[in-house]
Design a protein around this nucleic acid. Structure first.
Lengths: 191, 191
DNA sequence: CACTGAAACGGAGAGGTCCCCGATTCACCT
DNA sequence: AGGTGAATCGGGGACCTCTCCGTTTCAGTG
């Protein structure tokens, strides 16, 4: 999982974990918090934070890496109980809810999509895998196109979330998701 | 067009126009530029800039208000020569190109969508109207669903642009647009 | 013309992101 | 233990966004 050959020095590892823990706590408060404030609260200099997490997304991804796990089970359950296209729609709605409760996730996904890093990092990697699973099930059932790229579908999802991710836009988001899921169905041969 | 009853004072009007001209010039350079720098270059205090344009989007919208016009003619031409759904796809591609040449437009559209202000301001108002025209033509031809909200379609467009708006993502964006336009077609009755 | 109140201005400053670089600490070897 | 180079640290600063509030300027009035 760690791409670098040399493991972190003990103090660096400690700082890193402490930063993640501090950020996790700070994020759950809901109120916006500056990165410098997180560093200060963790008792390290801001440069240390930026050295471990070059972008805000890197930190966000680490903070939520464990919390994303249940969404995979959700996807499995949905696939077991509904037709794939409907399961996809339901899962996206579920994900929107999950993301809505967690500051910074949508922005992070958009930023990673825009820079071609979707699928890098724990959270969007998991999202990509889950989408891959559901899309494949849909293709096997003939309900969704085959050959769809989970990265692109994840990108579309991130895009609409960035535009209509707020809880009070739930209805609007749902209509957008309907459009998207329908667009993922196989093209009808009769125009 | 000016929603306020009292016209601007002469000096305020002068400053406003000068700010827009300065920003237009600064934006075309391509390099990122700070709002304070624009204010300074225009010879006014930064507070004056923020008073005239409370958000960055407000300034961006004014800067490009004239440049958006040709896109309406493009839409008409496309509608005259192609089937509506295809015209919609082509116009979105055309808009992506237009937006790609103009710093800040995508971010502004996303911000305005997210805050429910899509359709406010010159540029996104024009986009909304054009989309309304094309969507209606598509609905009349039975090629697109009826009752689609241009604001929502514009939001989806802004979303995918924020994720895949860079010129080197053109191919990816085009696949996303295919999904979206297909999703806007009427639901097939036979599942 | 002053005169005056409202409108508009602008600089300073609070708070944010992010990086530079001299100081420090660790891990390993003797 | 003590030495040493490399890894890591952290404060301070550059630059950004955005606002507060004392000062200036405009546009009508007698």
């Amino acid at each position: 999982m760690n791409p670098s050959r040399t493991p972190l020095r003990a103090d660096a590892q400690r700082n890193r974990e402490h930063l993640i823990a501090t950020a996790a706590e700070a994020f759950t408060s809901g109120r916006p918090i500056s990165l410098d404030a997180i560093a200060k609260r963790a008792g390290v200099g801001s440069a240390t934070l930026y050295r471990h997490f070059p972008t805000r997304e890197d930190l966000v991804e680490e903070v939520y890496r464990d919390q994303i796990r249940p969404l995979r089970d959700d996807a499995r359950t949905l696939l077991a109980n509904e037709r794939p296209a409907q399961a996809l729609h339901a899962w996206m709605r579920r994900f929107a809810e999950w993301a809505g409760e967690r500051r910074g996730i949508c922005e992070a996904l958009v930023a990673m999509s825009a820079t071609g890093r979707f699928g890098t990092g724990p959270v969007c990697d998991e999202v990509q895998q889950i989408l891959g699973m559901v899309l494949e099930a849909g293709a096997d059932a003939g309900e969704l196109r085959s050959g769809l790229d989970p990265v692109e579908v994840g990108g579309i999802l991130a895009g609409v979330l960035s535009v209509a991710g707020a809880p009070e836009q739930r209805a609007q988001l749902d209509r957008m998701l309907t459009v998207i899921v329908d667009g993922l169905r196989p093209r009808q041969l009769a125009q």
